[in-house]
C-alpha cells in the first residue's frame, strides 16, 4: 500500500497536519486549486538533489502554513506533480513563484480553478516520493491527454492515497 514518506533529510518534517487556525482557513473564503506537472531540472549528485528538494519542501510548507495553502507534492526523481489549494490571492502569488522557477522544465499547468472545498485540508504539504509512486502510477494513472482529465486523475489518486486511515485517526 502507498505510504506517505517522511521528509528526506531531517528536520521537523512530520508536522504536516495543517492547523485549522489562520486566515487561510476561513470556511467562508472561496477555495481555488491548481494542479501542475513538470520535469525536474535540478542538477547534481543524488544527495545534492535530495537536499535541494528537501529545502523546497520545507520552504513550501513554511509558506503554505503562513498563507493558508494546503496540498500535495509528488516527486519521482524526474518529475514533480503538485496540487495546491487555498484562497485565490495566496494561491496566485505562490503560482507566480513556482511558474518563474527554472528548476522546472516542461512545466504543464493542468488545472487552475475554483474548487468546492479543499481536498487536502489536513496537509500543509503532503510529500510523496518514489516509495509511494509505484502505487501512484500503477494501472496506467500516468497523467496524459486532456489536462482536465489528467488533473482529475491525479486528484483522485492522491486523495485516495492520503485518505486518513482509521488506525491513524483518533
Amino acid at each position: 500500500m502507498a505510504q506517505v514518506s517522511p521528509l528526506p533529510g531531517a528536520g521537523p518534517g512530520d508536522a504536516r497536519h495543517h492547523p485549522a487556525a489562520g486566515e487561510g482557513s476561513d470556511p467562508a473564503q472561496p477555495i481555488h486549486r491548481l494542479v501542475y506537472r513538470s520535469t525536474s531540472a535540478i542538477l547534481g549528485t543524488e544527495e545534492q538533489v535530495a537536499a535541494e528538494v528537501a529545502a523546497i519542501v520545507a520552504a513550501a510548507r513554511r509558506n503554505n502554513l503562513a498563507t493558508g495553502l494546503t496540498g500535495v507534492l509528488v516527486y519521482s526523481g524526474e518529475s514533480f506533480t503538485q496540487v495546491l489549494e487555498g484562497p485565490l490571492a495566496a494561491l496566485e502569488a505562490t503560482y507566480d513563484r513556482i511558474s518563474a522557477d527554472l528548476r522546472h522544465r516542461q512545466f504543464d499547468l493542468l488545472q487552475f480553478t475554483r474548487a468546492p472545498a479543499r481536498s487536502f485540508g489536513n496537509w500543509e504539504l503532503a510529500y510523496l516520493t518514489q516509495d509511494a509512486l509505484d502505487a501512484f502510477w500503477q494501472d496506467g494513472a500516468m497523467p496524459g491527454g486532456d489536462p482536465t482529465d489528467a488533473a482529475n486523475r491525479v486528484l483522485e489518486r492522491l486523495t485516495e492515497i492520503l485518505r486518513p486511515q482509521p488506525a491513524a485517526t483518533g
Partner: peptide
C-alpha cells in the same frame, strides 16, 4: 521563451 510560454494566472484567469 520557456518561462513566458507557461500559463499566467491573473485574478484567477489562466
Amino acid at each position: 521563451i520557456e518561462l513566458l510560454s507557461r500559463p499566467f494566472v491573473v485574478q484567477g484567469q489562466v
